[in-house]
Amino acid sequence: MFGDLGYTRNDVLQTPFKGVSPTDAETRFNYLMARIRVPVEWAFGDVLRYFAFVDFKKNIKMGLQACGKFFHVATFLRNCHVCFYGHETASYFGCTAPDLPDSLVSLSAV
């Protein structure tokens, strides 16, 4: 997984290289990963915009509600919305959104 500089690098999480004089390879890595991370953040923003209840910290009660399931369902529904209406991420990467039936078939294989 890739996170921003706010996280600590470990065996599971990679963060951007930092330092006074990063190598050319480190600079290139940081640039490429930042280009990918931005559309991922768009997707999270969409989930919170379309299904704001999953972001209401005062409304969601850990241990009393299925908070993780709420987010999974909201993400699933957001992906269905993308199949119908497209998304800026598809144009960013120069591809088209999948058809809903194809998405549901691939999901059933999981």
Rank of each mutant, 00 (worst) to 15 (best):
V54E: 05
Y50M: 14
I60R: 15
P39G: 07
G19L: 02
V54T: 15
F56S: 13
V40E: 02
V82A: 06
F17Q: 02
R49W: 01
A66G: 01
E41S: 04
M33T: 12
T23S: 15
A34Q: 07
K57W: 04
Y85E: 06
V54I: 15
T23Q: 05
Y85I: 00
D55C: 11
V73P: 04
V82Q: 09
H72Q: 13
R78W: 08
I60T: 13
D55F: 05
A43I: 11
L77C: 10
R49F: 03
F84S: 00
I36G: 14
K18C: 00
L48R: 15
H72M: 07
F76M: 08
G68C: 12
L48Q: 15
T27W: 04
D24P: 04
K18N: 05
C80H: 05
M62Y: 14
A66P: 09
I36T: 14
A25Q: 05
F71T: 14
N30K: 00
Q65M: 15
D46R: 15
K61Q: 13
G63C: 04
F44Q: 03
I60S: 04
Q65N: 09
E26C: 02
L32M: 11
F44D: 07
V82E: 04
P22C: 02
P39K: 07
D24C: 02
G63V: 00
A34F: 03
V73K: 13
K57Q: 12
F53D: 12
A34V: 06
A43Y: 06
M33S: 06
G68P: 08
Y85N: 12
G19K: 01
E26V: 00
F84M: 00
N30G: 01
S21I: 08
V47G: 06
A25F: 03
K61I: 13
R28K: 10
F17S: 06
Q65S: 05
E26Y: 02
D24E: 14
L32E: 14
L48F: 12
M33K: 07
C80G: 02
T75N: 10
V54M: 10
I36H: 09
Y31P: 02
R35N: 11
T23D: 01
V40G: 03
E26Q: 15
E41G: 06
E41F: 02
R35C: 14
F17N: 02
F70C: 05
K57L: 12
H81N: 02
H72F: 06
K69N: 12
R49E: 08
Q65I: 04
T75L: 15
